[in-house]
């Protein structure tokens, strides 16, 4: 992609994404087996996270990685934008996408439990370009709620996209 097109796309995305809602939502069904497998990767032995299904367990905090990554791929890969009257995907080349960081906030949230059906929605926070290397940075503000509309986690994800990827 030529540098002028990269600049033009960067300008378009910075001007149009910040603060905008990401259309649609992602859904994740939480299974007992997945929660236990996830916790066991980290050697967690506390029965609160890996106990018997009938005793009731909750997700370990790291499980937030599972639903966040799943949801972000779905929301971002499916995202279509209209630039100069033409439809384009947000990501032109997914190989140029870099995941730069995540912040999980559980204040006022309820636990994730087996059988939960999570609904994940996102909106864009700050979007900016580092002109030196034309890497586009985007902050995504994601809220995750369960089937009872109770908040289970707020996530701020920072994604970076190298030139040619947007």
């Amino acid at each position: 992609m030529d540098p002028e097109e990269v600049k033009k796309n960067a300008k378009f995305l910075v001007e149009n994404l910040a603060g905008a809602e990401i259309p649609g939502s992602a859904k994740v069904s939480v299974r007992y087996k997945t929660l236990v497998s996830f916790a066991k990767v980290y050697g967690i032995t506390d029965p609160k996270y890996v106990g018997a299904e009938e005793d009731g367990i909750v997700a370990c905090h790291a499980f937030a990685n599972h639903f966040t990554v799943k949801a972000l791929y779905k929301l971002l890969l499916g995202l279509k934008l209209t630039q100069d009257g033409k439809e384009r995907p947000f990501l032109i080349n997914t190989a140029k996408l870099l995941h730069a960081g995540n912040k999980y906030n559980w204040e006022g949230c309820v636990d994730v439990k087996p059988g939960d059906k999570l609904k994940i929605r996102g909106k864009w926070g700050k979007v900016w370009v580092v002109e030196k290397n034309m890497i586009l940075f985007a902050e995504l503000l994601v809220d995750v709620k369960n089937q009872n509309d109770e908040l289970v986690c707020n996530v701020t994800t920072n994604a970076a996209v190298r030139p040619g990827g947007y």
Binding site: Y42, C60, A62, N65, H99, T156
Partner: peptide, 29 residues
């Protein structure tokens, strides 16, 4: 995000979340 789990486990090992307290926020770059 693989290594994030060892950070959250650090606090899970520290706190009994029913009796002691809870994790409010963890952020990583």
């Amino acid at each position: 995000l693989f290594s994030f789990g060892y950070l959250s486990k650090l606090f899970e090992d520290l706190l009994n979340q029913e009796k002691d307290g809870k994790v409010l926020e963890i952020g990583v770059e």
